[in-house]
Design a binder for these strands. Structure first.
Length: 289
DNA sequence: CGGAGTGTTAGTCG
DNA sequence: CCGACTAACACTCC
């Protein structure tokens, strides 16, 4: 699930981990912590103090006193749950059946204990996600190929135009999803950005003129910021609030609304498979250029 | 029941 | 280098 807004939401909430010390680490799915072996991973983390919680693209960074970074990618179905003592848990990532009540459950692959008795659980139904412990240098290498942060000041309409000019023959949605170009946009926000900019996701990028590029640039920033403000599309406290959708869901215009009508013009929305991904748009509001 | 689809991305093959 | 496809995995939906 998690795209940039969801990981950013989680990052902000997990700031609470700063200054906590890791007392114990339990790995129940060894592949999650590769390339380290389970004992080695645990040994390296034990005693570490958390100095900061950051984000790069869709990766959550838990920075440690030693200078190493515990990087976590939730991929499609990962979920993090921080269980403070006697307080409501912090839940982020993909909502999961099986609940957050009885942890650990069969999808819990990593448990980090802190000296104050609180715990961080990493659940992942499909086990695509990972928690990699890296040095600063390894982190640099790992993220060297990742594109610009769309919410950074550096991401201007001109930068977007430059990216488009580099790959003018690719469909615009493909560019938005390409993590080596722009970091953190996934399937939901790619479709939503295109809708707001009134551009078809399949549109050949090179056909966009400066005006459309400006609109798209604006749309990307608007939708990402709105979603962060709404704490993401994914359900937070999903099971405790009994299946209620995440705060962003009512604000989605096209994603997941396949057979519903466009909120702007009333036309029935279209859902197709494009580039291997479910792609949603309004054939009335979004016309070929 | 079978098959398609799912918020991701790395790797392979032509 | 590029695009198309697949695998990693497990569940839900039709």
């Amino acid at each position: 699930m998690p795209e940039l807004p969801e990981v950013e939401t989680l990052r902000r909430e997990l700031k609470i981990l700063v200054n906590k010390t890791i007392s114990n680490v339990e790995v129940r799915a060894p592949k999650i912590v590769l390339p380290f072996s389970v004992p080695e991973f645990a040994k390296r983390l034990k005693g570490e103090n958390i100095t900061s919680v950051e984000r790069r693209a869709k990766i959550l960074l838990i920075e440690l006193t030693s200078g190493s970074i515990l990087t976590i990618h939730l991929k499609m179905t990962g979920q993090l749950i921080y269980a403070p003592k006697g307080k409501a848990p912090i839940v982020g990532g993909h909502p999961q059946k099986g609940g957050i009540e009885n942890l650990p459950n069969k999808y819990t692959h990593l448990i980090i204990d802190f000296t104050d008795g609180t715990k961080l659980y990493f659940n992942d139904l499909r086990k695509f996600g990972w928690a990699r412990l890296v040095t600063k240098k390894e982190f640099e290498v790992m993220t060297a190929h990742i594109g610009i942060e769309p919410l950074s000041k550096a991401f201007t309409a001109y930068v977007l135009e430059t990216i488009i000019k580099k790959y003018p023959r690719r469909p615009i949605k493909q560019l938005l999803l390409d993590q080596t170009l722009i970091a953190g946009i996934g399937n939901i926000y790619a479709d939503e950005s295109c809708f707001l900019a009134k551009i078809l996701p399949m549109e050949i990028a090179g056909k966009l003129h400066t005006k459309e590029i400006k609109k798209l640039h604006e749309a990307i920033i608007y939708i990402l910021k709105l979603s962060i403000q709404k704490k993401g599309t994914s359900a937070k406290n999903y099971l405790r609030s009994n299946g209620k959708p995440g705060g962003m869901v009512p604000h989605l215009n096209v994603y997941g609304r396949g057979k519903e009508v466009c909120k702007v013009c009333g036309t029935t929305l279209t859902k197709i498979k494009f580039n291997g991904r479910g792609t949603h748009f309004c054939s009335q509001c979004q016309k070929p250029l």
